[in-house]
C-alpha cells in the first residue's frame, strides 16, 4: 500500500535552542489510513505537524509526503504541496472571522487549483460541492450565519468541511474535539471519520484523550517514538 507520510531519521531543533525537540527514527502513515496520534503537550506535536505541513523546513533526515521528499524542497513548493494535499483542522478558532461560512469552506479551492478541480470533478459548481459537504456535516442551515455567531461545534464542522473540500489525500486534525463536550465529541468524530472514508483520505487525528483511539486503525504515541523527549517528562 502507498504511503501518505513517511518519516525517517528526522531531527529538528529550533534556532538557538539547546536541544532537539524532535528526533523520530520512523513514522509511516498509509494512504487512506485512520491514525490516532497520541500527543500530549510537550511531546513535539506542534513541530511534527508543522514539518509534515511543510511550514517549517526539514533540517535533517527524510520526510516524504505522498512520495515527494520535503527535505531541501523550496518553501514555495512546500506551500503548494500543503495547499494541494493536506487539510488542517485545529483545536479552535479555525475560521477567518470576516469571511462567510461559504468563503471559509471554499478557501482551499482559492489557493489550490488542484483542490478546485477535484471539488468540481463530482459535477456541478463549487457552491454545490460545498453545500453537499455542509449538509453531510449537518450544517445546511448555517450557511448564512456570520461565522462569529456559530457555536464552537458548528465552527469545528465548518473547519472540517474546509479541510475535506477538494478531496485532499491527508487530513490532519489537531485536537479538533477538545473544545467540545463529550456527546458532541463523538458525534463530530463520527462525521469526520465517515467523510474521510468516503473520500479515501488519510486522517491523522491528534489528541491527548486516548478514549477516542478505539475508532482508529492505528494508534501512535508520539512520546514513545520521539527520542528527543524523555519519557518521564510526559505524563
Amino acid at each position: 500500500m502507498a504511503l501518505a507520510i513517511e518519516i525517517r531519521d528526522v531531527r529538528f531543533r529550533y534556532p538557538g535552542a539547546a536541544a532537539d525537540c524532535l528526533d523520530i527514527e520512523l513514522l509511516q502513515v498509509e494512504a487512506g489510513a485512520r491514525v490516532f496520534l497520541y500527543g500530549p503537550s510537550g511531546s513535539g506535536k506542534s513541530t511534527l505537524l508543522s514539518l509534515v505541513g511543510g511550514v517549517i523546513p526539514v533540517q535533517q533526515g527524510t520526510l516524504n509526503l505522498l512520495g515527494k521528499n520535503l527535505t531541501h524542497m523550496r518553501p514555495a513548493k512546500c506551500d503548494r504541496l500543503r495547499a494541494d494535499h493536506i487539510g488542517f483542522i485545529f483545536q479552535q478558532f479555525n475560521l477567518i472571522p470576516y469571511l462567510s461560512v461559504m468563503d471559509n469552506v471554499l478557501l482551499p479551492c482559492r489557493f489550490s487549483s488542484r483542490r478546485q478541480q477535484q471539488a468540481l470533478a463530482g459535477g456541478g459548481t463549487l457552491l454545490k460541492t460545498a453545500r453537499r459537504l455542509l449538509s453531510h456535516l449537518q450544517l445546511e442551515k448555517s450557511e448564512h450565519i456570520p461565522v462569529t455567531q456559530l457555536s464552537v461545534g458548528q465552527q469545528q464542522r465548518v473547519a472540517a468541511a474546509r479541510a475535506l473540500i477538494g478531496k485532499p489525500e491527508i487530513v490532519i486534525a489537531d485536537e479538533p474535539t477538545s473544545a467540545l463536550d463529550a456527546d458532541r465529541q463523538s458525534a463530530f468524530l463520527d462525521l469526520l471519520l465517515q467523510e474521510c472514508a468516503e473520500a479515501n483520505t488519510a486522517l491523522i487525528f491528534v489528541s491527548h484523550n486516548r478514549q477516542l483511539a478505539a475508532q482508529f486503525h492505528h494508534e501512535i504515541a508520539l512520546p514513545s517514538i520521539n527520542k528527543a523527549v524523555p519519557i518521564e517528562d510526559v505524563i
Partner: peptide, 15 residues
C-alpha cells in the same frame, strides 16, 4: 496572527 496562521495552513505562501 491567528488569521495569518489559518491562511498559511490552507496553503498561503509566505509571500
Amino acid at each position: 496572527r491567528r488569521e495569518m496562521a489559518i491562511l498559511r495552513a490552507i496553503g498561503a505562501r509566505r509571500r
